[in-house]
Amino acid sequence: MAMQISDSAMLATSGAKARARAAALENIRTEPAAVRIAIITLAVSFLTIFVVLPLVLVFAQAFSKGFMAYVTALAEPEALAAIKLTLLVAAISVTLNLVFGLVAAWAVAKFEFSGKTFLITLIDLPFSVSPVISGLVFVLLFGAQGYFGGWLRDHDIQILFAVPGIALATTFVTFPFVARALIPLMQEQGTQEEEAAISLGASGLRTFFRVTLPNIKWGLLYGVLLCNARAMGEFGAVSVVSGHIRGETNTMPLLVEILYDEYQFVAAFAIASLLAMLALITLVAKTILERRLDGGEDRDH
């Protein structure tokens, strides 16, 4: 007994240091402090240089000649026309993709059929097509030398270099957003609640509006938000089909390019700052929505 006590007392003194060192070093799932700090520093500096700085620079440049210059730049008729056009185009393409997204998600998520994965791949296609090509395909269809070019000219319908063309190209580019936000969510929720509603005598549409829609409202909002951000910010595709007619077919991103090329930096960055603001608001809302979706709070009414 006495042996044991002295034994452990000795351990407590001589082993204490070695033991503390082992405990500190030997958390099996982490790295030494130096490595940890190096990794964090690397990650943070990379994100700061490549992401934070450009963002800060947009606002710094926009306000570089003072607040009045900023406001004046935005009040230019050209700027106002671009803002109006951007809102109009976004409204058209978001509405179209919202309806399509709901319809497609219902078909894909609530039913089993062969070729489903392939269909999802097709819906995803615009994600991996260069924006320039997204514009080009409509030029090939509706341009003067395009497949429908002659017919359109005969009937005096303007698609390219006009709002319909810009809206079409934007719809193409933002096609997957709503559907892709809804499909996994609706697949996860299954069909039981809808089946219960149908078995209780509800009609299909009623079931959709009373049961499905409340369950997916946050997911739907998420999709619409991302869709809208991309629709307002699209540059490449719109650039190809717009024709750059000043005050008529210039969206905000196109105007940024024109002003920048004309060395009107304050004006260019003023418009850019509006778009950056849109991106930041979208991100904040997205983060909040993601927390809601992850928390499974999608069902509170």
Binding site: L11, G15, A18, R19, A22, A23, L25, E26, I28
Partner: peptide, 9 residues
Amino acid sequence: EDALTHGAR
């Protein structure tokens, strides 16, 4: 032997 001076490895 005191095992706490060694890690799992």
